[in-house]
Amino acid sequence: MLIRRPDPIAGGEITDERVYQNRRRFLETMGLATLGLAAPGSLWAGGPPRALQSDELTPLEDVLSYNNFYEFGTGKDDPAKNAHTLRTRPWTVDVEGEVHEPRTFGIEDLWQRFTPEERVYRLRCVEAWSMVIPWLGLPLRDLLSAVRPTSHARYVEFTTLLDPEQMPGQRRGILPWPYVEALRLDEAMHPLTILALGLYGKALPNQNGAPVRLVVPWKYGFKSIKSIVRIRLVREQPTTTWNAAAPREYGLYANVNPMVDHPRWTQARERRIGELRKRPTLMFNGYADQVASLYAGMDLRRNY
């Protein structure tokens, strides 16, 4: 069920690009064939979708062209068009707050000090679509351990770059900029939580949150904040962007939960990008075995 075990994966196992490319060509060919031949038959034949729970990698092309990254526009294709203005070198991430050794990491430090490993995760957007993406990242807890949180640290707050010059979407106040997200410390320390530096074997493309972003696979995508410049450990629950913008719609937890609907759309099903028919959404996005214990005894309907 878990697409790939989160244990460290040896560098040699990382799929090289030729394999990705071939896979993609295969998918394209299949896609065309499906459109031309299979679709009329299978589409109207009824019955459950053929590959109900298969977790094929989402084609790179879709990962690059279908993004929610409002700093570069609110259309799905805007980030791919506009994110070229983001300068990702030099780039630093301040890690501060309730830690014994606050530090500023250069992006190169992150690559060198914490050898990024491949993690293939499902990504479930609150808008009821999903992808499967091979990230390249480091467990967030490795970074947090390096700065040694104090005993007062209870939450981790993340902040995106604020620079309307580089991020044209910030020139309009559709959201209170900069974008801020937060996790409980135990969520941040969970082995599935990573800071991604790349995807499909390469450094992150700008539209996917270069040069460093969070990936929390059991939560809705908006939790996985992009282009991070600051990580602060704090005592009190931070104010996060979407929660502040629409508290009834977006909670702090935002755990993927097919039983709790967003007021504007059902969360029971999702459309895997590349598929026509929707599939049932899994509790905690299919990572319940790993993360359900974090929320033992909590009312997930109230703590959405």
């Binding site: 459109l35 062209s65 279908y66 799905k76 294709d77 459309r271 990008i273 590349g274 026509l276």
Partner: peptide, 10 residues
């Protein structure tokens, strides 16, 4: 021509 993007229904 397959030009409806990543989410054709949308």
């Amino acid at each position: 021509t397959g030009g409806l993007g990543a989410n054709p229904v949308e």
